[in-house]
Amino acid sequence: MNVPTNAYLIFSALLFAIGMAGFMIRRNVIVMFMCVELMLNAVNVAFVTFARSFGDVAGQVIVFFVMVIAAVEVVVGLAIIVAIYRRRESVSADDASVMKG
């Protein structure tokens, strides 16, 4: 079966949009964070698609960089989320509202 390049790009754009919508709708901090990871992986799909259609390795190498960055973000993000959970036993973004104005 031959899948056209555009189908992959539309798939990537859809994944990105789902991640974006999820980030804005969901209130659980961990789910919001997962949505960001989804967006990063959507970009990876786009990079691989372009690299494949150009016959260029650079795009595939970039994906490795993005994966490392995503992993590092998990480390820092979960550390912050755990510190907050220890204090108030909740990971809802609505509870993080001490500051307003």
Binding site: L9, S12, F16, G19, F23, V29, M32, F33, V36, M39, L40, A42, V43, A46, F47, T49, F50, A58, G59, I62, V66, E73, V76, G77, I80, I81, A83, I84, R87, A93, A96, S97, V98, M99
Partner: peptide, 29 residues
Amino acid sequence: RPQESALKYFLLGAFASAFFLYGVALAYG
């Protein structure tokens, strides 16, 4: 307060860098 500010900064920052990266992918494309 520092906890809350770090959480907001981190979540929105990660969200914004995903947009930046998608822009880079489209520029590459």
